[in-house]
């Protein structure tokens, strides 16, 4: 995790209504210097609206947006030290690569020789040396992406906003750009706020992930926290695959579900509180039926490349299990859980 400095952007009770629809329902969020923060959630969860409010394209209906402690909610976008990489890049089709990147500096009437130096430096940072005179409309998606990043970063913003910038690229290029974006962020040492609906992208690049749904923040944490300690059913379900089981907390470190008690490591719940348990498919170990409490029959086995995905049917439910071993369909098996692998969450109100 990168060294994070002071809080640079602070959202306080931000709400946003479009007509009579509320798309943000009270967002509180601190964003720090030099942080790679990802807003993650399904489409329509409000993540892009947060980005557009920070950029200045939307005004919050209520709440404060602080930039270095000053409320900028009503400051127009062209007066903010924030730049954006747009989802479809939004490169100016009538300008070549060089002039696209130089646009912001030309507006600020920076000295031509300084512009030249900065644009060249930025183009080489994104790996586009020698592309100065190219027509941006004839570049590949990945190259346009790089021009868009260079065009934003050349203005030396304090914060870079990225609105699903990788969604238009093919799978292989997307992987490549993920690594590169992270590298660029570390090199320029500024805050990146990244919006995506792709959990893998979020987990592999971010310092902090903000999981959103329905205009509300569901959980803020490091990728590891978000994956291993989801706070509620939505997060568990959205991030990775999971078995979500309703149960009761007997007392600290003892949970009961599907008729059996299991040791776990979670504390701080009320006695007998109704909770939900997350079991990651790769954490369930398959053993002989007599060695386990939970027993069931394998009803399907699908090869997924690295692992097999098994569905085991018990008296109460079906469990999803990922394993590298081959198991026959129809076989009776037992399932064992380590206490660290049982993640207890508060039950969500619906």
């Amino acid at each position: 995790m990168a060294d994070m400095g002071d809080c640079i952007i602070e959202l306080r009770g931000i709400t946003k209504n479009f007509d009579d629809q509320q798309v943000l329902r009270g967002i509180d969020l601190n964003i720090y210097e030099n942080q790679f923060l990802t807003l993650l959630g399904p489409s329509g969860c409000g993540k892009t609206t947060i980005l557009r409010i920070i950029a200045g394209f939307e005004e919050p209906s209520k709440g404060e947006l602080l930039f270095n402690g000053i409320d900028i909610a009503k400051v127009p976008p062209y007066k903010r030290e924030i730049n954006t990489v747009f989802q479809k890049y939004a490169l100016f089709p009538f300008l070549n690569v060089y002039d696209n990147v130089a646009f912001g500096l030309n507006i600020k009437k920076v000295d031509k020789s300084v512009i030249h130096q900065k644009v060249q430096k930025m183009l080489s940072l994104v790996g586009l040396d020698g592309f100065e005179k190219r027509d941006v409309t004839l570049l590949s998606g990945g190259q346009q992406q790089r021009v868009a990043i260079a065009r934003a970063l050349v203005n030396e913003p304090k914060v870079l906003l990225l609105d699903e910038p990788l969604s238009a690229l093919d799978a292989k290029l997307r992987k490549e750009m993920q690594g590169e974006l992270k590298k660029i962020q570390q090199e320029v040492g500024i805050t990146f706020i990244f919006v995506t609906h792709d959990q893998e992208e979020a987990l592999s690049m971010s310092d902090t992930v903000v999981v959103m749904n329905d205009g509300k923040i569901q959980q803020i944490g490091t990728p590891v926290d978000i994956y291993n300690e989801p706070e509620n059913r939505f997060v568990a379900d959205f991030i990775g695959e999971s078995n979500i089981i309703e149960g009761n907390m007997i007392r600290d470190c003892l949970v009961k579900f599907d008729g059996y008690e299991f040791e776990c490591v979670d504390k701080g719940f009320k006695e007998n509180e109704e909770i939900e348990v997350v079991l990651r498919p790769e954490d369930i170990e398959i053993v002989a039926p007599e060695q386990a409490n939970l027993v069931g029959e394998i009803i399907s086995s699908v090869f997924k490349g690295v692992h097999y995905e098994l569905i085991v049917k018990t008296a109460q439910r079906e469990y999803k299990i990922h394993t590298t071993d081959i198991h026959e369909v129809g076989k009776k098996v037992g399932m064992v859980l380590d206490k660290e692998d049982i993640h207890v969450m508060y039950k969500m109100d619906y």
Partner: peptide, 27 residues
């Protein structure tokens, strides 16, 4: 016209007048 080009112009520091002449009118 792609409206995100107008937003990109604002984002890069161009005010309304500059955006009109440098982006909207050209397009």
């Amino acid at each position: 016209m792609d409206k995100s080009l107008i937003e990109a112009s604002y984002d890069l520091g161009a005010n309304r007048r500059q955006t009109f002449w440098k982006v909207t009118f050209k397009l």
